[in-house]
């Protein structure tokens, strides 16, 4: 028996939205909650190597969809929601060389862009995000302040930050705070 209906709400539905901080500096930051589509954690089996091409086959074709963050560990993400059948189909493609853990409701993606985006992220992480060292498609699991997050470069001046759902709003507020000196436009609704 169900005592009350469970309502699925986006994790950032109630988060701060609007323009904050310095007026037009020419280097404004844009923060955007991204669609809660799919997040698949893919773990390579013991002793398997050279899985990159295989992992790319289960991604949606986007250049930055498959994100390596350690030996034999990836996140495969995308805007589309996937049914259990579709995920099972992807698992079959991996033919035992890697396994999938569905994390779509557990992790939240935040898009971040603007001319000063590297300077803002550098306030929270020690990872060198310079384009020469951290090209488009590169990912790093790290701490932003005290919150664990996966940072991915998606363009010349754009990054995605993926964070555990329960930490999403806290990180969102911190990213706004870190961006104030440049000015920030935050869109919490997809």
């Amino acid at each position: 028996m169900v005592d009350f209906a469970l309502v699925h709400r986006p994790a950032l539905a109630g988060a701060k939205s609007g323009s904050f901080g310095a007026p037009a500096t020419g280097n404004r930051i844009t923060l955007a909650a991204l669609p809660e589509g799919h997040v698949l954690q893919v773990l390579g089996s013991k002793g398997s190597a050279g899985l990159e091409d295989l992992i790319r086959q289960i991604a949606d074709g986007n250049q930055t969809a498959a994100r390596a963050y350690g030996p034999g560990q990836w996140f495969v993400v995308g805007d589309a929601t996937l049914s259990p059948t579709e995920i099972a189909g992807k698992a079959a493609l991996l033919s035992g060389k890697a396994s999938i853990a569905e994390q779509s409701h557990g992790r939240i993606r935040i898009g971040m862009s603007g001319g000063s985006v590297e300077a803002v992220l550098a306030k929270g992480t020690a990872v060198d995000l310079d384009r020469a060292k951290f090209p488009v498609g590169r990912s790093a699991m790290t701490l932003i302040g005290h919150i664990s997050a996966l940072i991915t470069r998606t363009g010349d001046e754009s990054f995605e930050v993926m964070v555990l759902r329960g930490f999403a709003e806290s990180l969102w507020d911190e990213l706004i705070q870190m961006s104030l000196e440049f000015g920030v436009d935050a869109r919490a609704t997809v």
Partner: peptide, 8 residues
């Protein structure tokens, strides 16, 4: 343990 990184 690289807890907040590669977890190795």
């Amino acid at each position: 343990h690289h807890t907040s990184g590669c977890r190795r």
